[in-house]
Amino acid sequence: MDIKSFIDSTYLKTAAQAGLDENQNQEVLKTFVNEAIQEGFKLIMIRPEMVSLARKIVLDTSAKLLIGTVIDFPSGNSTIETKLNEASQAITEGADELDFVCNYEAFINGEIDLVKSEILKGTQLALANNKIIKWIIEVAALTDQQIIQLSALIKNVVLTHFSEADYNAVFVKSSTGFYKTANNEPNGATIQSIIMMLENASPLPVKAAGGVRTYEDAVAMIQLGVKRIGTSSAKEIVHRRHNQNEY
């Protein structure tokens, strides 16, 4: 299994979250990008303010590494216009893929038309610029029924407004990995949540993110049917595979 083709190698910490100043965090980002190039990863996932720096490194090294970024991260409750402006800026600065945080709070509150509108407009923007888009639904904030309903809502908006040729470019993604849960409950992808997403988002692809830290975790998600895995443990996952192959 070419597990690298499934992995979005992720670094989404702010300087404050990493316990660093801004310059130090930029140095961490540079190391992260260069390691991703050396490892032959397909894509990195970083914050929007880091996209231009990452793009410069990729251009300077003539690497094939793709750059993904997050939009309205991690809360997802900004206006549609704010999300579109942030996404447009990221595209201008060199992002290849856009992971939007869906306004799951609006969905929980019954503001369904608002959610449908942002799914439609965000997807239109991404596809018009030949970008892959992923909608993060934040499964840890939702009940099982809400996971099912929101996955189906995204699917239905895409199937209603876009052609079959576009489906593979619009993902439903589990989590930001930054949601604060009570009692140390999982804040990211679980087997149960991913199964519900796969059953209700199809034919749209699903990305598992949050809590995928080991080779075994990654293989389990791939065997369920996910097409992408977002993880900050990409290097460890890949090297675990290599170690297995040596024995």
Rank of each mutant, 00 (worst) to 15 (best):
L224T: 08
V219W: 07
T214S: 13
N243K: 13
I222R: 03
P205R: 01
H239E: 14
S232Q: 10
G211W: 04
T231I: 02
T190Q: 05
Q244I: 11
E199R: 15
T231R: 00
I222L: 08
A220T: 13
A218S: 10
I229N: 02
V238G: 07
V212R: 00
L204F: 10
V219R: 13
A201R: 02
A209K: 01
K227L: 11
M197H: 07
A220M: 08
Q244Y: 13
Q244S: 09
G230M: 05
T231P: 02
P205K: 02
R241N: 09
L198A: 04
M197N: 05
S193T: 13
T190W: 07
S193W: 01
E236Y: 10
I194L: 04
V238A: 09
V219D: 08
N243C: 12
A220S: 15
D217V: 05
L204M: 07
I191C: 10
V212M: 07
I237E: 02
P203A: 10
R213E: 05
I191D: 14
K235Y: 11
Q244K: 15
S233G: 09
N245W: 13
N243A: 15
R228K: 12
M197T: 07
M221D: 02
E216L: 13
I237W: 00
E199M: 10
M197C: 04
E236I: 12
V238S: 04
A220V: 10
V206H: 00
E216C: 07
K207I: 08
M196P: 07
M197W: 01
P203Q: 11
S202T: 15
E199F: 12
I222V: 15
I229H: 03
T231C: 04
N245R: 14
S193C: 08
N243D: 11
I229R: 00
R213L: 07
A208K: 00
G210K: 02
P203I: 08
N200W: 04
R241T: 10
I237M: 03
E199H: 12
V226H: 00
N200Q: 12
P205A: 11
V219P: 06
T231S: 10
E216N: 14
H239F: 14
L198S: 01
V238R: 02
V206R: 00
E199V: 09
A209I: 01
H239Q: 13
Q244L: 15
G230I: 01
D217S: 14
I194A: 04
A218K: 00
K227V: 08
K235P: 06
S202Q: 10
R240F: 14
Q244V: 10
N200Y: 09
V206T: 01
S202V: 12
V212L: 06
A218V: 04
V212Q: 03
A201H: 03
D217E: 08
R213Y: 03
I222W: 08
A218I: 00
L204D: 00
A234N: 06
T214R: 11
H242D: 14
I195H: 14
A201Y: 01
S193D: 09
G210T: 06
